[in-house]
């Protein structure tokens, strides 16, 4: 599938393409999600230490993976927009941020639900959870900065710088929080590395991760489409689109 990327880097040509791609990714997300949850809840064996409660990791762990990954992807799009001055790249970064924040929030929420049976508390200052929390703050900061700048071009550029500074900081923050956690010997539970982890469990998590991927792409494309419409509302092609019968 040889796509001419430069053709699709203009919002006007990307808009209909995204419209055609969204149903594909949405269906894939639904199917993979159903399969992943089925594996997670019915196929995967009961954990001999943690019982049935552990099954929340099929939602929790892939969400945590996605939350960090999306931040890096967002920073990469933002950097591309800053360097090449392509509007669509910056719009992608803006559109990714809420999805990343949702993933981060999901990871925190399910982590807390999981923590109650495991640690006997809703919240433990565990290294992963704390990093996730700070990551959520970074997402919120990015969105708040972009929301408070009226000029979209300036918002794109300022957001890009913040995302890049954040991307440099994410590993440092993760390392420092880990260091802090080992010194204070807080409660920590190893996720996904326990020797008892069956291959079906890993499979379930991978399928769920794929489902999240598809969902993230679909959601981001939808958001990009509305950003394009909003920013190009004075362009002729958007007016034609609005004027044409649906």
């Amino acid at each position: 599938m040889a796509l001419n990327w430069f053709k699709y880097s203009s919002p006007q040509t990307f808009y209909p393409l995204a419209g055609r791609l969204i149903p594909v990714f949405a269906v894939l997300a639904a199917v993979l999600g159903a399969v992943g949850l089925y594996i997670g809840f019915f196929v995967a064996p009961t954990d001999f230490q943690q019982g049935e409660a552990y099954r929340i990791i099929f939602i929790h762990v892939p969400a945590a993976w996605m939350s960090m990954f999306i931040y890096l992807v967002m920073a990469a799009w933002a950097a591309l927009g800053l360097i090449l001055n392509t509007r669509l790249s910056s719009m992608m970064a803006t559109a990714l941020a809420p999805t990343g924040a949702v993933m981060t929030f999901l990871a925190l929420w399910t982590g807390s639900l999981w923590g109650k049976p495991m640690w006997g508390t809703w919240w433990a200052w565990d290294a992963r959870m704390t990093s996730e929390l700070i990551l959520l703050f970074l997402y919120i900061g990015f969105m708040a900065l972009q929301a408070s700048i009226d000029d979209p071009r300036r918002a794109d550029k300022a957001g890009a710088i913040l995302a890049l500074v954040g991307a440099v900081n994410v590993p440092i923050i993760y390392f420092s929080v880990k260091w802090w956690n080992t010194l204070h010997q807080g409660a920590s539970i190893s996720v996904g590395r326990s020797p008892s982890m069956a291959s079906t469990m890993l499979l379930g998590m991978l399928v769920m991760a794929l489902a999240y991927w598809m969902y993230s792409i679909a959601a981001t494309l939808m958001r990009v489409r509305s950003i394009i419409l909003e920013r190009e509302r004075n362009a002729q092609w958007v007016r034609d689109l609005a004027g044409a019968p649906a």
Partner: peptide, 26 residues
């Protein structure tokens, strides 16, 4: 980043405090 931006005082806190975490920890 927040120069001339609406509500920049609170916004600075939101942007900067998470980035201060490693300095605080060490």
């Amino acid at each position: 980043l927040t120069l001339g931006v609406r509500g920049s005082g609170v916004l600075i806190a939101l942007l900067v405090l998470p980035l201060y975490v490693p300095v605080l920890i060490f």
